[in-house]
Design a protein around this nucleic acid. Structure first.
Length: 655
DNA sequence: CTAGGGTTAG
């Protein structure tokens, strides 16, 4: 039996209202209820005016947000079996929420159901909301189940709670129950439940309902639609809904900019940011976070620095600081990153992980491991990604023993089960160290299924250590899982060519053509004077391409005098023999480096981002050139960074 | 009384 039915029969609420002036309190409205009619008629000590005082006092404290005094007054009302009106209780409950006063909140809950009092739906909704804000969803659900009647707010409160708690199935289930119950969802309901979509078919259905109920014009519903389409990678759909909006506001700008930034379309994110500024909106912390993320993905250090200037205008914001930190790490400026990290007023697991990974990717593995030790004493618990960063640091510095130690003890030390990516790091660690058999064994021992990335890691190691048989095996595994991987196709066909297996080569080339597999051309980007210059292998559209080629040829000539020999001798090179040296010459990073040298002031670091991993020849080229020109060169490839200085690279030739 | 945006890996 629930609370309501248990007390129902006793209660005859009595409502008394009186002029505000009588109370001498200007801001409140009050009426009070008493379930104790029989008691004062039989001469109990509490007089009518005393009762007014008790409720009056309670009301005053509630509106003054004085929680301790209000709770004391509540206690006295409870004794006298008196009740205030629902709005006053709502004030008190707001106050409990603000103070995270769970105990007091539960007392209010008990009180409003005591002695047969029947709170209105409005008041129970307030209590529902309170439990939701306290993250006590089970309590909220119990209360919800006990409600004699539930309106759209009751349903929406719970649906939103499940959506926010990532209990998507539950949220969707509740929506269906709501519809079955004959309660019509409103814009609040839909803007909440959209986040609970499990996929596009779900989303399409909800979108149809929204359209049918005529709610698609609501700003909140629309921005929720924009957001969820973007989160599911349907950026064009998101943009379409966004562009149709008449009133947009800042939040929806942030949604759409964030959507592109998170889907690694930094370019479009920045375009939208410019559009937003032109429309007269001022960026806030959320906007800047997304803009920084766009800079990060495009490696736009100079633009990132400009954003930093705007960041310091705002109050400190952990998420924003983390994005700033990551921007400096990913743009290869460790000095700035370190500075940002040290100045942060608050650090969470993301800040630590970002910095650790930043050190590791930039070739400072020892610093990464040292920082991890500091983190362990700081009281912040490492997570899945932190450990990944630590293992990455070990694998890229050849620290086999450290890596094995952390991998084997991660469950015991940090309570984290090794996932596919952790295994991947270990395969990398063992593979690079030449322990190819051990690496293969580890893949077969994995608790989760290896994916194409895992096998590609092994293939990379085979390439370095020139193990053709294992490379063939790994390549076949990759093509099973990812039949469109052009790089692997070409690699495999070169393995066959090397062993004169021409029939296999022909078969492979045929299945490539049939499958429509195309190799992504190598591309490098450089930021100069707020402009991004892109260089693509074989593309001659850059206005200064002729001058660049001329300069490159001269540089190569000078480097050859210093002993540079173009390295066409990679056993598993991904190009056909006769094209090799010529193609190497025009690798996009060489063009970008030369253009950077020609355009940037003397001594300024040349920073390049590229879409493919750097090849051995370009690596040697950059090392020698950095020394000859006495200039730092930083190249970011999809996995890590190369800081070239004085004829050496921060990766220690181990990438 | 119920609703929307941002950070770490690959």
């Amino acid at each position: 039996m629930n609370l309501i039915s248990r007390f129902k029969c006793y209660c005859i609420p009595l409502s008394v209202s009186f002029p505000l002036s009588l109370l001498g309190i200007s801001f409140q409205r009050s009426s009070f209820y008493s379930g104790a009619a029989t008691e004062w008629s039989t001469g109990q000590s509490t007089s009518f005016s005393n009762q007014i005082d008790v409720v009056n006092e309670f009301t005053t404290y509630c509106y003054q947000r004085d929680l301790p005094k209000a709770m004391k007054a509540l206690n006295s009302m409870q004794k006298h079996k008196l009740w205030a009106d629902a709005i006053t209780y709502a004030e008190l409950i707001k106050c409990c929420i603000a103070h995270s006063a769970i105990k007091q909140g539960k007392i209010v809950h008990q009180h409003v159901f005591s002695n047969g009092y029947e709170p209105k739906t409005f008041l129970i909704n307030t209590l529902l909301n309170m439990y939701v804000k306290f993250h006590l969803l089970d309590e909220a659900q119990v209360l919800f189940d006990q409600m004699p009647e539930r309106n759209v707010v009751s349903w929406t409160t719970l649906i939103a709670a499940y959506s926010n708690a990532e209990l998507k199935e539950k949220a969707l289930e509740m929506l269906i129950m709501m519809l079955r119950d004959g309660v019509k969802p409103n814009m609040y309901t839909y803007s909440s439940v959209l986040r609970a979509c499990n996929g596009l078919s779900n989303l399409t259905q909800l979108h149809c309902c929204i359209f049918k109920f005529g709610l698609e014009s609501d700003v909140f519903v629309r921005s929720a639609l924009v957001d969820i389409y973007a989160k599911w990678g349907e950026l064009q759909a998101a943009l379409h809904i966004f562009n149709e909006m008449v009133t947009g506001d800042l939040v929806v700008w942030n949604s759409i900019i964030g959507g592109f930034a998170q889907n690694s379309d930094g370019d479009e994110a920045l375009n939208l940011y410019i559009r937003m500024k032109r429309s007269g909106f001022k960026a806030d912390q959320s906007t800047l976070t997304s803009v920084l993320r766009a800079c990060t993905s495009l490696a736009l250090l100079e633009l990132g620095r400009q954003v930093h200037v705007h960041v310091i205008k705002f109050d400190r914001d952990l998420v924003l600081d983390n994005a700033l930190l990551d921007m400096y790490c990913k743009c290869g400026s460790l000095e700035d990153a370190n500075c940002t990290f040290n100045q942060m007023f608050e650090k969470d697991v993301i800040s630590w992980s970002t910095m650790i990974i930043g050190f590791a990717q930039n070739g400072y593995s020892q610093k990464a491991l040292d920082l991890f030790k500091v983190m362990r004493t700081s009281g912040t618990q490492p997570n899945y990604i932190t450990v990944l960063g630590v293992l990455f640091a070990c694998s890229h510095a050849g620290l086999v023993e450290d890596g094995k130690y952390y991998f084997e003890s991660m469950k015991k030390l940090f309570g984290i089960d090794p996932g596919r990516e952790h295994y991947g790091c270990m395969v990398d660690l063992l593979g690079r160290a030449g322990k190819l058999e051990e690496a293969t064994k580890l893949i077969h021992e994995m608790k989760c299924e290896p994916d194409a990335v895992t096998w590609r890691t092994l293939l990379g190691a085979c390439r370095v250590h020139r193990n053709m048989d294992l490379a063939e095996y790994a390549a076949k595994q990759i093509l099973n899982l990812d039949p469109h991987d052009a790089g692997t196709f070409i690699l495999l066909s070169n393995i066959y060519a090397k062993s004169q297996r021409w029939e296999d080569v022909a078969n492979l080339r045929r299945s490539m053509t049939d499958g429509g597999v195309k190799k992504e051309p190598g591309c490098s980007w450089i930021e100069i004077n707020k402009q991004i210059h892109a260089f693509i292998l074989g593309d001659k559209s850059h206005p200064k391409i002729n001058a660049i080629h001329e300069e490159l040829n001269q540089i190569i000539g000078r480097l050859k005098e210093e002993g540079y020999v173009p390295d066409t001798n990679f056993v598993l090179q991904d190009l056909e023999g006769e094209q090799m040296e010529n193609s190497l010459l025009y690798h996009s990073e060489k063009l970008a480096i030369v253009f950077g040298m020609m355009s940037l002031p003397k001594g300024k670091t040349v920073r390049i981002r590229k879409n493919l991993r750097i090849c051995g020849d370009c690596h040697v080229f950059a090392k020698l050139l950095a020394k000859m020109e006495n200039r730092s060169i930083v190249i970011r490839d999809p996995i890590r960074y190369h800081h070239f200085q004085d004829g050496a690279c921060s990766c220690g030739d181990y990438w």
